[in-house]
Nucleic acid binder design. Structure first.
Lengths: 356, 356
DNA sequence: CTGAAAGCGCTTACAG
DNA sequence: CTGAAAGCGCTTACAG
């Protein structure tokens, strides 16, 4: 284990000054091509890498992004919503492509998460991920803006909200789900998910669902909306039981997330309701598990790959001092068997193969 | 957005030298209690945080760990094995508890992942996660050892392997699964998973399964072992079809991972075999999805919480210069319905509730 | 195109 | 218990 080499070692071997080594390696145009090549060759030979601390201290930037993932305090450690995990993969890759490292941290909503990643130069900016009560977190977001912290948030794009948000078009997704159920001839369609400013994402999905019903001259029955703020299977199960208790003649359910829908499927099976024959079910997110339920779950896909790229590029723009704007991504209905329509042939073969 | 304050600002306000501020904040015993309190109060008031680059440069350490997650090149972006995601959560939390930041990076096996996190002071050590051909990655591990890189790997604990590994007792887990199937009266028990030094984890699980059969005077039929190196639902589906083709009288299957088992369940359903009546199924890992399959999947649990803690504490010991040893965690059979035995009452209620 | 020099913000021997 | 000073390894005006 030999000690690491510095830019002085390279300079000595290349017969140039240390400053020239630095320039050559950072790609400065002020350097002679032949000199640059020589320096690069020696650097490679010595396995040299720029010291992140020295470079960061001098340049006053970390070339690192921090991803803060908020967990439901209710869910146990291992039950992170798979949707966020898919986002995490996409964000990591997008950051890496831009030459940024990614620091990951799981937070409780109660934590002091305005904690200064940026002031301590741990990261140049923050990506915020995770549901939680919007009205509670809003104050924190405002504080971040005041402090001049660079951040982007995944979530509902709400008018007048502090900072920049990237989200999918929840309203449009909700409309697509509602319209599709109506097209299957369903009329008594329940909604599982809290519909209030506390959960703006779910609220928008609900608004879209209402719009679809109204467009079809189908009255919205508020009693068919069941509160469910946390995206867990158990909450979905409980909400579905409540819905059945309120109205046994329900013929469809739109759940505000796949995890909720999976819980609903279990409650329906227990109640002896066949899916989709008796009750059609649609979820939201398109987590990998959605293909594996019985029957496979029709759902609204959020494009996590594009979402991750957009979160990262928006944050980097902000860090560069450009003005970054909030933005919505389209949501796409993915038809499987749980809604009673013929599955789309586009669904990848291995998973779409009939399960029975 | 005011500029961040430095230790000099604090020193000035506290009427002490900058050196004293540094000592007070780092908890040096050389500092007067009253002085320390004053300094701390001012630091808090000014929202001061130590600059990570300056501190890291001076101390020659990053107080950061890097998690390298290797993906199956075959699986698409969003289909990261949920087992690893659960590990990720546990590792992040364990690192945070020890005051370390965690850098996360997804790697292709083909990448240059010996890339110098440590030399560049991005991280003080590496945690390696992910299946892959062990014989291929072995060379890389040896290189890491030569370079004096601090690292811990999650995986099989193999004699004479380079570096330190933490894993679960795969052999014992395999034995538990095999013995349990035998206790249910099953005799023609297939195994899905590559059984070779290329996949030491699966190999150990297979060895445990063989040991259980032999202990029950049940001959091991090599034709009932089907290769499956990547943990994906599709690979499990294909392997199960192959197994049925080889021997239609199979009455049980032990799959080397839950994802493989889930694919096997689908192949069995398609073939008209009832689970567990005709064929009992056991998986390995206990991913969250295992509770939600039809029927719920009996599996061998790997304790990801303890695993994460152990990975982090072992790596930190190594960084401190202590000699760290490889170590195995126990594996626990979790009985659900797919194996044909009465489910354990200990399984958390919401998920254990009868699904039909 | 290149070099000498300052300085980023800390930590820690060294001296008192 | 405290302070003055050196130095971690870079980047970048400044001067040539």
């Amino acid at each position: 284990m030999k000690s690491r080499s510095t830019s002085f070692d390279i300079a000595y071997r290349a017969g140039v000054s240390q400053a020239t080594v630095s320039r050559a390696l950072r790609g400065s145009p002020l350097v002679n091509e032949e000199t640059r090549r020589r320096v690069q060759a020696i650097a490679k030979e010595l396995n040299y890498t720029v010291d992140k601390h020295a470079s960061g201290l001098r340049r006053q930037r970390a070339t690192t992004l921090a991803l803060l993932l908020f967990e439901d305090p209710t869910s146990d450690d291992s039950l992170i919503n798979p949707f966020f995990l898919s986002m995490l993969g996409s964000i990591t890759r997008a950051a890496a492509r831009q030459g940024y490292d990614l620091l990951v941290s799981f937070q409780q909503s109660s934590d002091d998460w305005h904690a200064d990643y940026q002031d301590s130069h741990k990261a140049d900016g923050l990506i915020l991920l995770g549901y939680g009560d919007y009205l509670v977190s809003r104050g924190r977001l405002e504080r971040l803006v005041e402090q001049g912290t660079h951040f982007v948030r995944w979530g509902a794009v709400v008018d007048g909200q502090p900072g920049v948000s990237i989200g999918c078009d929840n309203r449009q997704g909700g409309t697509a789900a509602g319209a599709h159920l109506l097209a299957q001839g369903r009329r008594r369609i329940g909604f599982l998910g809290t519909a209030s400013p506390h959960c703006p994402e779910f609220f928008d999905r609900y608004a879209g669902y209402c719009a679809a019903l109204q467009a079809a001259d189908c009255a919205v029955d508020e009693r068919l909306q069941i509160d469910a703020a946390d995206s867990t299977e158990l909450v979905g199960y409980t909400a579905m039981r409540e819905l059945l208790a309120r109205d046994a003649r329900i013929d469809a359910v739109f759940a505000a997330s796949d995890l909720l829908a999976i819980g609903a499927l279990r409650a329906l099976a227990e109640a002896g309701r066949r899916v989709p024959d008796d009750v059609a079910v649609i979820g939201f997110d398109d987590i990998p598990m959605a293909r594996l339920t019985t029957p496979p779950l029709t759902t609204v896909l959020q494009d996590t790959k594009r979402a991750g790229e957009l979160l990262v590029s928006t944050l980097l723009a902000q860090i560069r001092g450009e003005t970054a704007a909030s933005c919505m991504l389209p949501a796409t209905l993915v038809i499987r068997r749980s809604c009673g329509a013929a599955p789309d042939a586009d669904d990848p073969a291995p998973h779409a193969a009939p399960a029975a």
